[in-house]
Write a protein that binds this DNA or RNA. Sequence first.
DNA 1: AAAAAAATGTAGTAAACAATACAAAATAAT
DNA 2: ATTATTTTGTATTGTTTACTACATTTTTTT
Lengths: 211, 211
Amino acid sequence: MKNTNDNDQTSYKLRLTLKGQATRARIIEAAADLMAEQGIGRTSMEDVQRQAKVGASQLYHYFHDKKELVRAVIAHQAEAVFEAQQPYLGNLDSFKALQAWRDLIIEIQMGRQFKNGCSIDSLVGEIAESEEEARSELVSWFAHWEGEISRGLHDMHARGVLRSEADPAGLALALLTALQGGLLLSRLRKEVTPLATGLDAALWYIRSFAT
Amino acid sequence: MKNTNDNDQTSYKLRLTLKGQATRARIIEAAADLMAEQGIGRTSMEDVQRQAKVGASQLYHYFHDKKELVRAVIAHQAEAVFEAQQPYLGNLDSFKALQAWRDLIIEIQMGRQFKNGCSIDSLVGEIAESEEEARSELVSWFAHWEGEISRGLHDMHARGVLRSEADPAGLALALLTALQGGLLLSRLRKEVTPLATGLDAALWYIRSFAT
DNA sequence: AAAAAAATGTAGTAAACAATACAAAATAAT
DNA sequence: ATTATTTTGTATTGTTTACTACATTTTTTT
């Protein structure tokens, strides 16, 4: 997947100058940082203005309300997550690649010292039922994530690396589930054990279908 | 574990009348319902007043600020979760019991139609780093949860139902991780597949250590 | 029954907040 | 150069929010 930009979600107002694009990007970056650190609800539009060094008029020029800004942040963070997991996430078609991906994820989380809610999983809890648009966007980001895993496993299945009775799609979902649960618990406990244990169990499970 | 009450967390003001206890309980119930449905941040103290049919003075008589109310809600929801999973959670010492527990959890989640964030896992995302007290309470609730699972698996290990090279504590953490990830994704997607797939994978993993 | 304490009702305050109004400056289009 | 459009600055609005002041009623204690 290529970064299909951050703009196509706002169709009602267009024509962005170079300077405009830069400002818009600066706002998203600032908002993403703040929301990752202290949550969406606790991040005010004034906070964003301060951090991005823009006035209120600018903020509302590029995002017509907070909901829209949040959606832009979700897209931004999702892309950051996928980018950070490359090139592994795009080629999970061997046990070795799966293992390397696992190691990378754990390294990333340790590097962040669990102070982050950067990954999109931490946004799930903050999206209320009311914000249906944001929720469905999150759903499709997770679907994409799951799809990347699934693709690799299907490949292994087709190549005969996984036994024929294995269900690649199910294995992918189980792996993603373990990953998300691990991230949740590791963030809460501020230590990496749950993530490592969960991922290792899921990988072991997948390996049990090796030919 | 016995319901060791909701009161011992506030020591500075005591002596609760029967009527007082009832009012306090009504407030917690109302707050828990609202926060489960629309999140902590989006639930105002006025909302709680309306729902519990109490005045502002009553609310602040029993909880000296919102943080304290949130902590009471966390405790309340945690106990509700454990209670709902009885008698299975207390006796996870056979494959049959584990399977029954899994079925119960899925049934509960389906019954709630995924409209709920009732379970405590949904509170994790809303607890900011700033609210350290609430976070550490959540940590210990999860530890208790993990402990209940672990106890059963240790029992199976001691009885020789699980092979000696199995690590009951690790298996318990992996199972809890899968459970939490499954709840997260199921809540987001509003369907039970991720939860079922994640739990089944974890249980299969545990079964692979059967003698 | 009198005194003390707990429970509740009514009204309000001050701050934080999302969002707007409107004009000036910078940039692009003709 | 002139016009149109985009970008930015300043000030403000109206609402929501957590929380409080204080008086009154109800219940408990003695």
